[in-house]
């Protein structure tokens, strides 16, 4: 499955925050997006996942055109994002946060609780088992029944990853998964990403921690001032003089 981004453009006033960006992301790979602050990376995520409407451009996933689809429809198509500042249901427990992400939950209402308790219980047991497995996989056992609002930044990122996985996503877009996360949890998150990728889930990752990102990603895209300025294998991209100039500045030269 492939995510195809074509001619994506978004301007605020005269400023083109995302300027005619096109590339493809395979759901069998881990792909990185890097670039200085304000390069348009997070805006691109919002455009791709439907949280923002673009001025021009198209998005398709698994050969399905999603350019006009709602964020929910894009998530259902298998493409789910996380947020730079993690977003979770703060008063719900970690387990409940995962449970609310499971699909097909528009099925039952209040009456079914009384009229079809058996069906509800069956459905509930199935997604609870799924959530339990996810909690173990993400090493969230100790906080499974704590309100998600009280977790550390890194744990919240794991919860977000868990929520994305519970939806059955095929391609997960992570917005700065390592920002403000301690080194041990960075390892945990990286390990889980690697393992999930081996199971066939694709990742598109925005990250400033180049060392951690290059260990994960097989392809890097570099953005600067809204434009895509380089794409390719990390070693090639990072030695590109234009990239060094734009992103790493004089300091790393």
């Amino acid at each position: 499955m492939t995510l195809r981004i074509r001619g994506m453009t978004k301007a605020y006033g005269g400023l083109r925050v995302v300027d005619d960006v096109s590339f493809e992301v395979s759901s069998t790979a881990v792909t990185g997006i890097i670039g200085p602050n304000g390069a348009g990376k997070s805006t691109l995520f919002s455009l791709v996942t439907g949280f923002l409407d673009g001025d021009a451009g198209s998005v398709s996933f698994a050969d399905k055109d999603l350019s006009r689809a709602s964020p929910m429809a894009r998530a259902r198509a298998g493409m789910v994002r996380t947020f730079q500042v993690p977003r979770e249901f703060t008063h719900l427990t970690v387990r409940e946060n995962l449970l609310t992400a499971a699909p097909n939950q528009s099925g039952e209402g209040l009456l079914d609780v009384f009229l079809r308790p058996g069906r509800i219980r069956q459905e509930e047991e199935r997604i609870r088992a799924e959530a339990d497995a996810m909690i173990a996989f993400l090493k969230l056992d100790r906080v499974a029944d704590s309100p998600a609002g009280g977790l550390s930044g890194g744990q919240k990122k794991l919860v977000e990853l868990g929520r994305a996985l519970m939806t059955g996503a095929r391609l997960i877009l992570l917005d700065e998964p390592f920002a403000g996360v301690n080194p041990v949890l960075i390892e945990t998150i990286s390990d889980r990403v690697r393992e999930l990728n081996a199971r066939g889930i694709g990742f598109l990752i925005i990250e400033h921690d180049l060392a951690a990102l290059t260990k994960l990603a097989s392809v890097l895209h570099v953005m600067d001032r809204g434009r895509l300025i380089a794409s390719g294998a990390p070693s090639v991209v990072l030695s590109d003089p234009q990239v060094r100039d734009a992103y790493l500045g004089g300091a790393a030269a």
Binding site: P71, A75, F89, T100, Q105, S106, E108, D112, V113
Partner: peptide, 22 residues
């Protein structure tokens, strides 16, 4: 109950609830 969980989720963060398919 699942519907109760969803009610609390909407109370917590309506936008996140919406994109979670609730």
């Amino acid at each position: 109950t699942p519907i109760g969980r969803r009610m609390r989720a909407v109370a917590d963060d309506p936008m996140l609830a919406k994109v979670s398919g609730i």
